[in-house]
């Protein structure tokens, strides 16, 4: 497993053809810290940023580089050996079993008709145990809870054994217990030598586990740094309006975001969509 996979986004600008919305990034390097969370309101460009970093979207101007080489110069397979990407929601057409899903992550390591070699099996077993689904390996996806399904999809990316993981909302639609479990797992993977970058709406979990937070608003990065630097009331108000307060996490002393009971009416600057 190689961990030196920082991605350089060099004055990247991206625009969807349909409307005027654009994402404009400063010189940005991600994938150095062990666990980075990208946060921001809906429509702020979090997923777009992640897709650019994964090479799924091409910037209108500027460049996205790995090893100083533009991502578009990498064949898909070579890129996937270095960077694992998990999109938001991918409901499958067919009801695959958990282990079949995890084995999909081995695509880049095998030939035409796949392999059943010891290495591949070991990686699959390890990914399953990392996400705690070893006992459910033969169950079809439809028999799993939402949290377990999410973990199965994460396990597939883990089995890919890329040094950098880019995950789009791995905690979406999970209850607080399962969301925290997923974040804990990702933080642990970070400690074991992979770099993990996650898009999430879970500000508090992000503040609790991440080493670095990127706060996006309207396609711009408005704060970038450790949670204590980003999760401050005066910073967050710019993104989420005046309806929030920042307190102290009773366990860690870190920042904790809570909503006010009485909002400031229809506070501007809220959700863009």
């Amino acid at each position: 497993m190689n961990s030196g996979n920082p991605i350089d986004l060099d004055a990247v600008r991206f625009q969807y053809a349909s409307d005027g919305w654009s994402l404009e990034l400063p010189r940005l390097r991600i994938g150095v810290e062990r666990f980075t969370c990208i946060v921001g309101p809906n429509g702020s460009g979090k997923s777009t940023l992640l897709r650019l970093a994964a090479g799924l979207l091409k910037p209108v101007s500027g460049a996205v580089r790995l090893d100083g080489k533009s991502l578009s110069g990498f064949p898909r397979r070579a890129l996937a050996r270095r960077i694992g990407f998990l999109p938001q929601e991918s409901p499958p057409l067919f009801d695959y079993a958990v282990e079949e899903v995890v084995r999909l992550g081995r695509y880049v390591h095998s030939g035409w008709f796949g392999e059943a070699d010891a290495d591949g099996q070991r990686a699959v077993d390890k990914a399953l145990s990392d996400v705690g689904l070893t006992a459910q390996r033969l169950r079809p996806l439809s028999h799993l809870s939402g949290g377990e399904r999410k973990r199965a999809m994460i396990a597939a990316v883990l089995a890919q054994e890329s040094g950098l993981l880019l995950l789009d909302e791995p905690t979406a639609a999970l209850d607080i217990h399962h969301a925290a479990a997923v974040m804990r797992l990702l933080a642990r993977l970070g400690r074991r030598g992979r770099a993990v970058v996650v898009v999430t709406h879970e500000l508090n979990l992000a503040a609790l586990f991440a080493e670095r937070l990127l706060l996006l608003v309207g396609g711009r990065v408005i704060a970038d740094g450790p949670p204590s630097h980003v999760v401050r009331a005066e910073v967050l108000r710019e993104a989420y309006g005046d309806d929030i307060m920042v307190r102290e996490h009773p366990e860690t002393g870190g920042p904790l975001v809570v909503a006010r009971r009485c909002g400031a009416g229809d506070a501007g600057g809220n959700d863009a969509d």
């Binding site: 799924l56 397979r77 996937a80 990407f85 991918s90 695959y96 999909l104 695509y107 999809m153």
Partner: peptide, 21 residues
């Protein structure tokens, strides 16, 4: 044949797994 297993989820997932969609 193998690529279809990835595409059965989504194009983005397949790309993430290294499939030249």
């Amino acid at each position: 044949a193998r690529a279809y297993n990835h595409l059965a989820f989504s194009e983005e997932l397949a790309l993430g797994h290294g499939v030249d969609v």
